[in-house]
Design a protein around this nucleic acid. Sequence first.
DNA 1: ACCGCGATGCACT
DNA 2: GTGCATCGCGGTG
Length: 186
Amino acid sequence: MNLLRREFFARSAHEVAPDLIGVTLLVDGVGGRIVEVEAYDQDDPASHSFRGQTLRNAVMFGPAGHAYVYRSYGIHWCLNVVCAERGRAEAVLIRALEPQHGLEAMWSRRGVQAERSLCSGPGKLCQALGVTGAHDGLPLDEPPFELRARTEAPTIVTGTRIGLTRAADRPWRYGLAGSPYLSRRF
DNA sequence: ACCGCGATGCACT
DNA sequence: GTGCATCGCGGTG
């Protein structure tokens, strides 16, 4: 599956999510391989698209393969990949990655921390990679974004999603087995 | 280890 | 006014 093709993302978020584990995500050359994601679909009370289109979530309604960036708790930014299309607004939340490229930029943006905490959470990851609302709606196959296909098939673990109050029992969290860069252990 | 809380923007009731 | 797809800090076991 060619990551630069829109067809990769024009599938259900439940198919795309595990396929993103191990994929390298860069923003202006800063990033690493994705180790944790969550899927959200339109029949999902926890999804921003559940109640229909608004100004904030408009990007979720397509086209696929673009970044949906929203502000969380008034402070943090969170990065999603838009999936599906044809009115089915789905997305995959990028929750954690393994810092591999541009470590100096990450350190300066995040402040002095343990390396494992540079990108171990959706808000941390956006801060480390410099993702903000200015990236909302931008295609992921063009600069400043870059995606690189994985070279090995990862061992994937699943679990329930983090931090939800609604639909908290759905096992739509995916992670790279054994990675020390997860936001939480599975 | 876990628990509580404050910071802060914005969609929604 | 309330609740959140969060994080970091400070308290207690």
